[in-house]
Design a protein around this nucleic acid. Structure first.
Lengths: 195, 195
DNA sequence: GTCTATAGTGAGATAGAC
DNA sequence: GTCTATCTCACTATAGAC
C-alpha cells in the first residue's frame, strides 16, 4: 500500500543526484549549497544526508558515473577495424554523447579542481583512459598510411577539444541539427589528419 | 623618501589583481575568499576594499582586461592579406598568447557563470568579437577558393576550441617546445579546412 | 593605507523527535 | 525518511582608530 507520506525510497536518491548535477553545472560546485539542492528536491537540508555522506561524495559520484558511462558508451559504439571508419565513428559518438549530457560534461571538465586528492586521482585516471581512445585510432591510422599524423598525442587532444567545444554553442532547434553538426565535424576531423 | 611602513600605492593594487587571478584560476571564484586574497598579498581583508569596490568587480576587471588584451594582441599580430597566411598566424598567435596567460584564460572560460548580468553582457560581447576573427578569415579563404569550409561558424568555433585545448595539457619543459606545438597545430588547422 | 573589530548572513553537517 | 533545531565556522563588507 501507500508508503508514509513524503517517503519514496529509490526515487529521492536519483532526484538528489539530478538536482545536484543541474545546480553544479549552472553555478559551480562551490557556489551551490546543500540547502539549494534540498530545496530543488523538495526536502529539508538534513534529509540529504541519507543519500550522500557529504557534498564532496555527491560531486565525485556524479563525475565517476559520467566517466564510466562515456567509456562504456564508446566500447559499445566502437566499430573496430578500419582506422578512418573508427575516427568517423568516434567523432560522431563523442558529439552525440556529450550533447545528450551537457550538465555532466560541464561538471566533468570544470570541477576537477573541486575534487579532493583521492577523488581527483580516480577521475583523472578515467579521463586518461578516454583520452587514449582517439590516440589509439590515430596511431593505427598513421601506421597503415591512411592518415598523416605529425604527433599522435597532440592530434588526439586537439580532436577531443574540438569535438567537446560543440557543447559551448550548440542549441537544439538552431540553424543546424545534430546530424549535420556530426557530419561537418567528422569531416573536419578527417581533414585534420589528412584522411 | 621612504613611504610610511606598509604603504605602497601603485604596487599593492596590481598585486591584489595578480593574487586574485592566481587564486580564482586555481580554486574558482566562488571557492576563494577575500581573506585568502588578502593573505596572499600580505594585508588584512579590510584593506582590499581600497582596491576594489567588491569581489565581483575584481573578477569582472580581470576578465575585461584579458579580453581587451587578446583583441589588441591579434590586431597587432594580424598580417592581413592571404587568408591561408592569416589562418596560420592566427593559430600561432592564439596558442602563444594563451600559453602566456594560463590563469587569465582559465578564468575567462570558466567564470562566465560567476558574472552578474551586466558584467556578463559586456564580457560576452568581447568574446563574440574575438570569435569573429577566425570566422572572417575562413570566410575569405572559402570565397577565394583557397579553403574548403563547409560551415564558417562551425569551423571557426572548432578552431578556437582546438587551439585553446593546448592549455589543458602543455607543460613547459615537456616533450615538445612551444614552437613545435605551434607548428603542428597550425598544420592541423590548415588540414581542417583543406588549405 | 592598513589595522582590528564587528555586523549580518549563510554555510556544512549532526541530533533527536516523529 | 523527513523534519526542526542547532552547533560551529566562515564569509562579505563596513566602521573607525592610527
Amino acid at each position: 500500500m501507500a508508503r508514509p507520506s513524503g517517503s519514496d525510497a529509490g526515487v529521492t536518491g536519483p532526484r538528489v543526484r539530478q538536482a545536484a548535477e543541474r545546480l553544479f553545472a549552472r553555478h559551480g560546485y562551490a557556489a551551490v549549497s546543500m540547502r539549494q539542492i534540498a530545496a530543488e528536491v523538495g526536502i529539508g537540508a538534513g534529509a540529504l544526508y541519507h543519500y550522500t555522506p557529504d557534498k564532496q561524495a555527491l560531486l565525485a559520484g556524479l563525475m565517476r558515473d559520467h566517466m564510466t558511462e562515456v567509456l562504456a558508451g564508446w566500447a559499445a559504439a566502437d566499430p573496430g577495424g578500419d582506422p578512418v571508419a573508427r575516427l568517423d565513428a568516434f567523432a560522431r559518438f563523442h558529439i552525440r554523447f556529450h550533447l545528450d549530457r551537457p550538465d555532466a560534461v560541464f561538471i566533468a571538465y570544470m570541477e576537477l579542481r573541486s575534487l579532493e586528492p583521492a577523488n581527483f586521482a580516480e577521475i583523472e585516471r578515467l579521463r586518461r583512459e578516454y583520452e587514449a581512445v582517439p590516440q589509439d585510432i590515430l596511431r593505427a591510422g598513421a601506421a597503415s598510411g591512411a592518415m598523416r599524423v605529425p604527433d599522435v598525442k597532440l592530434a588526439g587532444m586537439a580532436l577531443i577539444a574540438m569535438l567537446t567545444g560543440v557543447n559551448t554553442w550548440f542549441r537544439e532547434g538552431g540553424r543546424l541539427d545534430r546530424g549535420a553538426v556530426e557530419r561537418i565535424y567528422a569531416g573536419m576531423a578527417r581533414g585534420m589528419v589528412g584522411a
